[in-house]
Computed example of a mutant assay.
Amino acid sequence: MSELLRDRYRVKIATHGEKALRIAGGESRPDLILLDVMMPGMDGHEVCQRLKADPATREIPVIFLTARSDVADETRGLALGAVDYITKPISPPIVRARVRTHLQLKAGADFLRDKAAYLEAEVARRSAELAAIQDVTIHAMASLAETRDSDTGNHIRRTQHYVRALAEALRGHARFRDTLTSDYIATLFKSAPLHDIGKVGIPDRILLKPGRYTPEEFEVMKDHPRLGRDAIAQAEAQLGTPVGFLSMAKDIAYGHQEKWDGSGYPQGLGGDAIPLSARLMALADVYDALICRRVYKPGMPHEQAAAIIAEGRGRHFDPDLVDAFQTIQDEFQAIAHRFADDDVTMQRKREWMETVSPPDIA
């Protein structure tokens, strides 16, 4: 066989199965294997089985070359993954023709496999690029809202991580296990920064007011969930197709000020009528508002904030969400520390607010 083929191909010879497996699994793998069945030690059938079981050699075509001519032998060889079965005595022209044919088929299969791998990598690259663009767009929009508010950019990061931690803690709960899939939680994390995007439509005299709102001012402030939902809906409409994270962002923006007992706004929804994403955000948003310092107020201790969350169980918040919060409150506290606002950031925010806040009128 070597004499027959080496004038056209580079031929490597193995006199037993173990050597054949070493050659096939080496750095320079063969494009085709001619394999005898009857060999000393390991027979050809076992060699073929091992070749096909190894991902590194699985795609190398195997032609059995043997004196066994029974149909049962040929059937077994093909069942093991061989592409052809040549019986001895051989016809040199036929062997050369079959070798040439299977090498051409192998070349075509390699091309298609490489093409598929390239396309798969390209799709993965484009998908990652699209996801990055989405993330940048979301954070740009959220940062735009943040620049007009007393909150800082770290409020966005903290609430993102709060809602994800809370959702993860609820994954095994009977009420939520069908909803809180990995995809849902990933979309939740991506959408959360847009919860207060509607604040861009609130006048500075109200948005930046450090004290309590008058009833009239509060009515204006209560419109920010609708403004946020409408802004996101308009962006989605311009795309011309529904987008998962934007749909959830609309639910969060419009529903995060609702309360479990129906006393929230803007719709006065209660219980499970409030989207789960909005219920998660409501708890995260309130916790952050309580524990984090603002330009006009210090933050309260975690223990006091946790007590207020507990008091809101069944009134402000979904009871099961409060229970989950209490089991992972240390994680909430760790997130707050990790993304705490530093003194430089707070000073810059304070100076900015002083330039845009309306003067007090005696």
Rank of each mutant, 00 (worst) to 15 (best):
Y213M: 09
E46V: 10
P242N: 02
A249E: 02
A24D: 06
Q329E: 07
R212S: 12
T152Y: 04
L194A: 01
L78Y: 08
I197F: 08
R58S: 13
R164P: 03
L280K: 04
I23N: 03
F332M: 05
P40M: 01
A53S: 15
L112P: 02
R113T: 13
P89Y: 08
E331I: 05
D7I: 10
D135G: 09
F245Y: 15
S91W: 08
D7V: 10
I274A: 02
A306M: 02
T355W: 01
H16R: 07
E129H: 14
G198E: 00
G262K: 01
Q257Y: 13
V356F: 09
A117R: 13
L188H: 10
D318E: 08
D272Y: 09
A128S: 13
D230M: 08
D285P: 06
A289Q: 15
A97N: 04
R76Y: 13
I232H: 07
L166H: 00
R158H: 04
F218N: 13
G211P: 03
V123P: 01
D341L: 06
L239C: 12
A249D: 04
A79N: 14
M353F: 02
G268F: 04
G17S: 07
D54N: 15
A20S: 02
D323I: 02
I252E: 07
A305E: 04
T15C: 07
P301M: 07
K259M: 10
T66H: 04
E146W: 01
H16Q: 15
K52D: 00
D285A: 12
E146V: 14
D285T: 04
S28K: 14
I291N: 07
D223F: 10
P203V: 00
T241Q: 10
H337R: 15
R313N: 11
P193D: 05
L194S: 02
G270C: 00
L283F: 00
P55W: 06
A324C: 03
A249L: 06
E18R: 01
R293F: 09
I33D: 06
D285N: 12
L65T: 12
A282Q: 05
A82S: 05
L78S: 01
T181S: 11
E129D: 14
M141L: 15
Y296K: 10
K297T: 11
T214P: 03
Y296F: 13
Y9G: 09
L21E: 03
I252R: 02
G25T: 09
G44M: 00
L276E: 04
A109P: 03
T66D: 03
I63G: 02
A249H: 01
H302W: 10
W260N: 11
E331C: 03
D251F: 05
A282R: 07
T355Q: 15
V11N: 07
P215V: 01
E46Y: 05
Q234N: 03
A334I: 00
P93F: 01
A284I: 02
P55C: 03
P30V: 07
H224Y: 11
G240C: 00
S28F: 12
K222I: 06
D183C: 08
E216N: 05
R126C: 11
K88E: 09
R164Q: 12
D151P: 00
L227E: 03
M141G: 11
A24N: 08
H316Q: 14
T241M: 00
Y254W: 12
V11W: 08
R76C: 01
R212H: 09
G312Q: 06
F218Q: 14
E217P: 05
G262V: 03
H139Y: 13
T57P: 05
K115D: 14
K88Q: 10
D341F: 04
V83E: 09
D70A: 10
D31W: 02
N154D: 14
